[in-house]
Design a protein around this nucleic acid. Structure first.
Lengths: 241, 241
DNA sequence: CCTGCTATGTGACCTACCCAACATATCAAT
DNA sequence: ATTGATATGTTGGGTAGGTCACATAGCAGG
């Protein structure tokens, strides 16, 4: 009941740090807002901050020359944005955009590299998170190719709702099309099917999940695979105790 | 002229290590053969060794429940197999198979973790390589979805030939289909088109690149994008000097 | 209330790739 | 030389999703 509105521990990575490591970082964490539509970084941009989201959804997007694109990973408060800082490349070929607004704590490049070089818990957890991200990206790659749009849309909705901790996802069908790499019309066809089956409802840019078990029946294996790998690599604090 | 037949430095990662770091690892490197068709590890297998290939091609493959699959990355003597050891997850959801036979030096899990914990050059290069691998995987994801098979086949051939340092790639069309996530027949159609345009020739499981510039004209942007990112992150020793 | 903007709905046609079924060609072993 | 196994060649029909073109429906501002 005394929980503050904003708390760095609302981010899963920070929450997983033992107290001493966390206290070392705390003075350097700076709260920022992530407004809807903000492009945190474009392809190839030199990244200055590592972001620990506490709410909202961030998408990693690959854009092609012909204007088409695909989301290759989705990040919520379980993860981090800006891994190329500690991985050493300093930039990535993907761009990073806010899909649903929220907040994040940011850590400067310099402090992060210092902390990472200590070889402590942040390093260990950051690398585990990176591996989870690789799994998500890989699974998305296979899913894009082999599963039909309905399965992919169910996956996207479930993953987004999980990360928002909310059954309402504010997004237009056109944007979903961009993320899943298909046309808006195709998204519309599929979404209408799900709506007429009363699994979801949507009005002007707001999708509500009405029947989660129903969606889980229609989703492809990719959703469970990614979820399981995240839980294996980054077990939530209450698990297994 | 006195170059030995097998030399760990034929692997790009080992070649990039400064002498002291390399000498520290050398006594622990063990030469192994990678025969055609060998499955180094299945999805979820606990990985015991990090492999530094000096020749041949290794594919990281994602298998789906319905039997379909896709290659998510291709590794030659520029890289390593078994990154989950130092990333901390110990296993990955992808399987690892030899596509073209060759050799590799292997390093035990224990020695690797010791060396990695030192925070020296191996750590730095291993993380850079991991980032390059993420880029390759992401680019493959988008390519799978948006580019037609001919472009993808050209990309696969060029990337394989680069890693083999040879214009002859020994592989059946059926296997290429598995890697690109399409049917053998589709590969055949496309390969015949390339053959009748005299860009490649093939006979019973052996593809020869006849006209590399011609292939480079037909390939999608993904080939150049991945190549450029590898060179940025892991510059070959002669570059920029 | 009208105008305009954004989001969703719907049609006709097209194409890349899938599926199934089978034909042929190469090579190795008896 | 025959047999069998593997690799490639070819067909006819099906479908998901793309392309293009336009219709409607909420919502905001003057």
């Amino acid at each position: 009941m005394s929980k503050p509105l904003h708390d760095p521990r609302q981010n899963g990575i920070l929450a997983a740090l033992p107290e001493p490591d966390y206290q070392r970082l705390l003075p350097n964490l700076e709260l920022i807002e992530m407004p809807l539509g903000w492009t945190i970084s474009e392809s190839g941009d030199h990244v200055k901050y590592l972001l620990f989201p506490t709410s909202g959804i961030v998408s990693l997007i690959y854009d092609l020359e012909d204007g088409s694109s695909s989301e290759i990973a989705i990040v919520g408060n379980e993860g981090m944005i800006g891994i190329s800082i500690y991985m050493g490349g300093e930039s990535m070929p993907s761009s990073t955009e806010i899909q649903c607004p929220g907040y994040a704590y940011r850590l400067s490049r310099k402090i992060l590299k210092q902390e990472f070089a200590l070889g402590g818990h942040l390093q260990r957890i950051a690398l585990l998170y990176t591996q989870a991200l690789i799994s998500q990206t890989s699974q998305t790659a296979v899913c894009n190719q082999h599963h039909v749009l309905e399965q992919q849309l169910c996956r996207w909705l479930l993953m987004s709702a999980d990360r928002l901790h909310d059954n309402n996802v504010v997004i237009t069908q056109a944007l979903i099309g961009k993320l899943l790499g298909v046309r808006r019309e195709s998204v519309n066809d599929t979404a209408r099917k799900l709506q007429s089956d009363e699994l979801i409802s949507y009005v002007r840019g707001r999708i509500t999940i009405l029947d989660r078990p129903g969606l889980e029946k229609r989703v492809c294996e990719c959703y469970a695979a990614v979820t399981a790998e995240y839980e294996r690599l980054l077990p939530p604090p209450h698990a297994g105790k």
